[in-house]
Simulated scan of single mutants.
Amino acid sequence: MRPLAVALLAALLATPLRAAPLPYTPSVAEELVIQAPVLATRVDGWIEVGTDGRVAGYEPITELGEPLRSRLRTMVDGFRFEPVLQDGRPVVARARMRLSLVAQELPDRSLRVGIENVTFPDPDGAERPADAPLLKVARRAPIHYPEGIAGAGFDVRVVVAVQANPDGSLRDVSVRQSALVHGKGREAEVQKLLARFETAALRGIARWTLSIDNPTGRPLQADELVGAVVVHFTVENRREPRPGVWAWETRTARRDAPWMDQQVAARLPGVGDVTGQDAFDGLREPRLKLQTDLRQLAL
């Protein structure tokens, strides 16, 4: 946990960001909404869901100490899912699952730990249907740490939503959410800091090109040409917090670009759902659909 220095930021944030003009204007919020800092971590594992939608098995991969491990297993065992159908009949389904945990400080200085979100990462594409469109990065432009502030050692994570044209060029890039990792600070300071990193991420990704594998043989719909990019800005020799390790995060509120409908927005991850090892992800509808209301649960 590292407070931001007002005098240092005043000098650093005055440094201009020089870059060539973009081929279009990315979606940028005029003023970022900064949320209260939270302690956060991620827990990865495998889950098996029976034909009745109940949890048949849960195998955490992330190392956790007690009593959190036992409490988390008990909570997951109580999850309820929509039964997965194959040829119209319910089947047993197994998938990789990530639990995004947050601990929020209460007025009495105690912490309330809960599950913020449940996602189903598929880094190897194992869950992708054979006839589903596949988006990959064909050409990357570099993304640079903002000028003049590398010496301050800020760790920042930015999740960017991308909308592609059918030829793989990008139609728009829009920041979904960003976070200062390992840090707290005054709202105005964090707001200016994250705006610098968001701009740097957008300027790099706006010059990327995607390759689109379309086995369907039909024109793709707009919601099939959307992906998410995770950018982790860090200084040399600094590692992203690994799953299971708690770290303070000061986040912006999630934002929806004008072109996002509710279904696309629901599939886009936030900073709490990803790690620095996640890169580009062509969004897909997960096989498992959780019915349990996470807002009612606390560890």
Results as ranks from 00 to 15, higher is better:
N117C: 01
L101F: 05
P123V: 03
R89F: 15
G114M: 11
A138V: 06
S174P: 00
R128A: 05
V159D: 06
I149Q: 10
F79C: 11
S110H: 14
R112F: 15
G151T: 01
R139Q: 13
A141V: 02
V175D: 08
A130L: 14
D167L: 05
V156Q: 05
P123Q: 02
L111N: 00
D108I: 07
N165C: 01
V91R: 14
E82T: 14
S169F: 02
Y145D: 09
F81G: 12
D124K: 09
S174Y: 05
A164Y: 09
A179K: 00
V156Y: 07
G88W: 13
P142T: 02
A132C: 03
G153K: 01
A152I: 00
P133H: 06
F81W: 12
R171M: 10
S178F: 01
P146F: 01
P129I: 00
S178P: 00
K136R: 15
D108M: 07
R94P: 11
V173D: 05
V162Y: 10
N117A: 13
L180P: 03
S174E: 03
Q104R: 15
Q86Y: 10
V175E: 08
R128Q: 07
A161C: 10
V84M: 13
D108Y: 07
A141K: 03
L106Q: 15
L135R: 04
P107M: 12
Q104S: 15
S100P: 00
G114L: 12
R171Q: 14
V118N: 06
V159G: 05
Y145L: 09
N165D: 11
V160S: 11
R96L: 14
Y145S: 10
I115A: 14
V84L: 15
Q104I: 15
L180T: 03
H144C: 11
V175Q: 08
R128G: 03
T119S: 14
R80H: 12
R112A: 15
P123M: 04
V137H: 09
V137Y: 11
